[in-house]
Design a protein around this nucleic acid. Structure first.
Length: 110
DNA sequence: CCGTTGACTTCCT
DNA sequence: CAGGAAGCCAACG
């Protein structure tokens, strides 16, 4: 089975515990070792709509905790509502207590 | 193979 | 402090 960069991203994203969020840089750093390749993660997420099973892309935000990818969802509010539904407070596309909800691929939920 | 793009990040102005 | 440009890496055309 050929594991593309995309699939690796998908796996990591799917491993994000409910009620937690992570950043593109964290995933990129975990996969490539370079936080500079965060764009690759975002790109993978772009294809995530075509992937199965479902990839909780709404749990992936930028390093600020800002919902940058909200415009790629069905509706601009979908991402925020999904996160709020998971118990994550969002204010103006910004994750509140981001560092508190932040999750790292290497840091499995305790 | 080369050029462009992209849901990012960081430095510089 | 806010906005713009550069850097980064991988996929797509």
């Amino acid at each position: 089975m050929k594991k593309d960069f995309f699939e690796l991203v998908y796996q990591v994203v799917r491993c994000i515990p409910k009620g937690r969020v992570t950043s593109y840089s964290a995933i990129s750093e975990y996969l490539t070792g370079s936080k500079r390749s965060a764009r690759m993660v975002g790109w993978a997420m772009n294809n995530s709509h075509n992937v199965h099973p479902y990839v909780p892309a709404h749990r992936v935000v930028n390093h600020q905790g800002l919902l940058t990818g909200f415009r790629h969802f069905a509706t601009p509010t979908q991402m925020q509502e999904l996160l709020e539904a998971e118990g994550i407070p969002i204010k103006d596309k910004q994750v509140q207590n981001f560092e508190k909800y932040f999750w790292h691929p290497n840091q499995l939920s305790e």
